[in-house]
Amino acid sequence: MSRRKFILNFSILFIFTFFMYGPLLNTIMLAFATQYQAPHIIPSAFGFTWWKNVFSQGDLLQAFFNSFLIAILATIVSMIICLPAAYAIARYEFKGRSWFLFSFLLSNAFPKIGLYTAIGIIFYKLQLMGTLTGVVLINVLNTMIFMIWIPIGAFQNVYKQQEEAARDVGAGPIRTFFKITFPSALPAIIVAAMYTFLGALDESQGTLLVGFPQIKTMATSMYGIILDQSPMVGAIFAILLIVPAILILWICYKFLGKKSILQQLFVK
C-alpha cells in the first residue's frame, strides 16, 4: 500500500469508527463514572455508586424484570403461533399459499407508529390497554417476520427422503416430525427465537403506546431516564440493554457463522 493510500484508508476507518462507535464507547465509559462534570471529557471519578442507585430504585428493577418476562412470553407465544404456519408454507402446496406468506410479512410494510395507534384504538375497545396480554401481542406481531421467515428456510432444507424413510419403518406423522423434522430445523429455530427475544427486549414504541404506564420495560423506561435522570443512569440501562444483544449475536455467530447473520439483517 502506498503512503497516500494508507492515509486514505486509515482516515475512512477513523471517521467511520468515530461516528458509529464513539457515542457507544462514551456511554460504556459513563456507566462506570461517579463524577462527570464539564469540562472533563473523561469522568474524574469511577465507581459503582450509580449502579447501587439504579438497583435501589424499585420501579427500575420492576422494569428490568418486566422486560425479560415479556421477551420470554413473546418468544414462546410466537413459536406456538408461527412455527406451524412456517411449516405449512414450507412443506405443503395449497391454494393461497403465497397470499398467506404475504400477509405474515405485512406488518413490516406499515409505519410502525401508525399501526400501533390503530391497534391501540382496538385495544381500548377490547380492554387490552395497559395489560401484559396486549404488550405481548404487540411484540409477537412485531417479531413475527423472524419466526416465519427463518424457519420456512429451515423446514425447506430438511430432506424429504429422511422423513419418508422414517415413515417407511412405521413412524407416525407426529413421531416423524419430532424425531426427524424438528431436530434438523432446530438450529434455525433457535436463531429465530433469539431474534424474537432480542426484538421484544428492544421494543419500545409499541410497548409505550399500548402498555404505558401500567407496564414499564427497560426500553420504555429509557424515555423517562433520558429526559430527566442523571446521564449515568441512562448509561447503565444502555449497558443492560446492549449486553443481551451482544451475547445473542455472539451465540448466533457460533451457531451459523457470519454469512447467515448478514442474511438475517435484511429480513429486518
Binding site: 462514551n26 456511554t27 428492544d202 429509557m222 444502555a238 440493554l241 451482544i246
Partner: peptide
C-alpha cells in the same frame, strides 16, 4: 444490533 434507544441516548 444495538437497541435504538441506546443509540439515541449515546
Amino acid at each position: 444490533f444495538i437497541p435504538g434507544l441506546v443509540a439515541v441516548y449515546s
